[in-house]
Simulated assay, not measured.
Amino acid sequence: MAEKCPDAADLELLDQWNTLQAGFRRVTDQLLADVQAKAGLTPSEFQVLWFLLTSPEQTAPMNQLAATLNFTTAGTTKVADRLTEAELLHRQPSAADRRVVLASLTDQGRRVAMDAALTLAGALRERVVSRVGAETFASTAHCVRELDPNPERLCRP
């Protein structure tokens, strides 16, 4: 089989993709650094608190939390341990199935999660929306949502 090199159109497409994913990663890192500086939460801690804040009754099974956030079971447990020690999260067996452990926000966890979410919203407005405009930002979010191969995993309040 003969090897085929990418043509100019392929190279342009690949360059555009690289620009998108690398730029998104750098902006995400900046935004989460803002949250960490102001709210004192690591990116994974913020992800857990945000997921629970937007979950029904602000509670979710630990295995659902791990699957939704693409964390390993051990990684989820480690983050949950830190959040529990900080009194932001409470874990308990499910009444329906004692094999299932539920993670819930404490009152303090709810307050910290909301403060962190407001910090992220402010950082998004400052770092992203102010530069590209609200319409472009909304349109880009819509386009990316359309590309998601597993949209049911998206957490919606």
Rank of each mutant, 00 (worst) to 15 (best):
D34H: 11
F46L: 03
S104A: 12
L32E: 06
L69M: 13
A103E: 07
D115A: 15
T84E: 09
T72H: 01
S139G: 13
S55K: 10
V101H: 04
E87K: 15
T28L: 06
Q47R: 09
F46D: 04
D15W: 11
E57H: 12
A66D: 01
N150R: 03
S44N: 14
L83Q: 14
L124Y: 14
L147K: 10
M62E: 10
G75P: 14
G133M: 11
E3Y: 10
A138L: 06
T72Q: 06
Q58D: 07
T119M: 09
T54G: 02
Q92L: 06
G122A: 12
T76S: 03
A123Q: 09
L52W: 03
L147R: 09
P93K: 07
L118S: 03
L88R: 15
A66T: 07
V129C: 04
L13Q: 12
E45C: 10
V112H: 00
L20M: 11
R98V: 09
A66C: 09
G133K: 05
F137C: 06
D10M: 14
S104P: 00
Q21M: 06
E45W: 00
R110E: 14
Q36H: 08
W50Q: 12
L20C: 12
L52N: 06
L88S: 09
L11M: 07
P56K: 11
S139K: 15
L13N: 12
A141M: 11
D7K: 00
L32M: 05
R25G: 05
P6Y: 12
A22L: 04
G133D: 06
D81H: 13
Q16P: 04
P61Q: 01
A117M: 05
P61R: 00
D97T: 05
K38T: 07
V79G: 13
A66G: 05
A39H: 00
H90S: 15
N150W: 08
E57P: 13
Q64R: 02
L89A: 09
L49Y: 02
M62A: 15
M114D: 07
